[in-house]
């Protein structure tokens, strides 16, 4: 079994709240240690759920983001007390390179978490959470998203047919485009007829779902709320004080190390769930 996603087999509310906490805190916690904790934990987690090639691809992408930010930030920001050299009499400073690296780490950590979230949090879960409140909107979104994918697949198919027949001019592309439009409209009419025939719009929609809020969901949710509440409070109080401009400064109080540990625990929760799940899997399988 390649894709396990044990964390996403928990109740959708738990994973939604968890990823909201991790992504939002990743965006707003400007502290190099917290950013590194977030990025490293995201990579530890994706090694348990992605295959090796995708992990390497993600790592290369993150490295490129960090290098790009480190190179471009000094071109636009000249603050900092350590000039390296001057460009058109504006200082290119060490601090602005640090700031670019820090922004790159933050950005890539958030992107990795978003990739994990969009991979594991499928439409079934979105419609479970939002369907009751915004039933029509979630149906419209699902139809629209499907249409995008459908148009892409169909245009690829038509392009293959056309290129096999030697029709590769711009005019042929326009013909293909109008064919796809017609096809999609027809499909839309069929869809609406089909929905009507099945009684869409008559009375309240009912939902089938397979999600049950169990004891482990409650435990993880409590842990997430307590840990993120504690770290957000510590951030607001200033225990994670950090500044790069004009000089690198990091605030270390008595509670800061505790805060780093709490945040590490928070971002390692999915990995822990994944490892617990694979241990249980091995344990149960050996008993069969």
């Amino acid at each position: 079994m390649n894709r396990k996603y044990a964390f996403f087999d928990m109740h959708p509310v738990v994973s939604l709240i968890y990823f909201l906490c991790v992504i939002v805190s990743g965006m707003f916690f400007r502290n190099i240690v917290l950013e590194l904790i977030s990025l490293i934990s995201a990579f530890v987690y994706i090694t348990t759920i992605f295959d090796r090639g995708r992990v390497i691809k993600t790592a290369l992408f993150c490295g490129a983001v960090i290098v790009l930010m480190a190179l471009t930030n000094p071109l636009f920001s000249h603050n900092g007390v350590t000039p390296l050299f001057y460009m058109n009499s504006m200082a290119v400073t060490l601090e602005s390179v640090y700031y670019g690296v820090s922004s790159g780490i933050m950005l890539s950590a958030v992107l990795v978490w978003c990739a994990v979230f969009s991979d594991g949090f499928d439409f079934e879960k979105i419609s479970y959470i939002f369907g009751r409140a915004f039933g029509n909107i979630s149906v419209v979104i699902s139809v629209a998203l499907r249409l995008i994918k459908l148009i892409r697949v169909r245009s690829r198919d038509l392009a293959m047919v056309d290129s096999a027949n030697g029709r590769t001019r711009l005019k042929d592309m326009l013909n293909r485009f109008s064919a796809i439009m017609g096809w999609s409209f027809e499909q839309g009419i069929e869809l609406s007829h089909s929905m009507k025939a099945r009684g869409y719009g008559r009375g309240r929609r009912s939902f089938y779902n397979r999600f049950r809020f169990g004891a482990s969901d409650a435990a993880v949710l409590t842990a997430v709320v307590i840990l993120s509440g504690a770290t957000i409070w510590m951030y607001a109080v200033g225990d994670f004080g950090f500044a790069i401009y004009p000089k690198v400064w990091i605030n270390i109080t008595d509670r800061t190390y505790l805060g780093f540990i709490l945040y590490s625990v928070l971002v390692l929760i999915p990995t822990a769930v994944e490892i617990r799940d694979s241990i249980l899997w091995k344990y149960y399988r050996s008993g069969i």
């Binding site: 007390v81 200033g238 004080g241 950090f242 500044a243 790069i244 401009y245 004009p246 000089k247 400064w249 605030n251």
Partner: peptide, 10 residues
Amino acid sequence: LSDGVKNAGV
């Protein structure tokens, strides 16, 4: 005043 300026001693 921002933490950065406060603590940079500039």
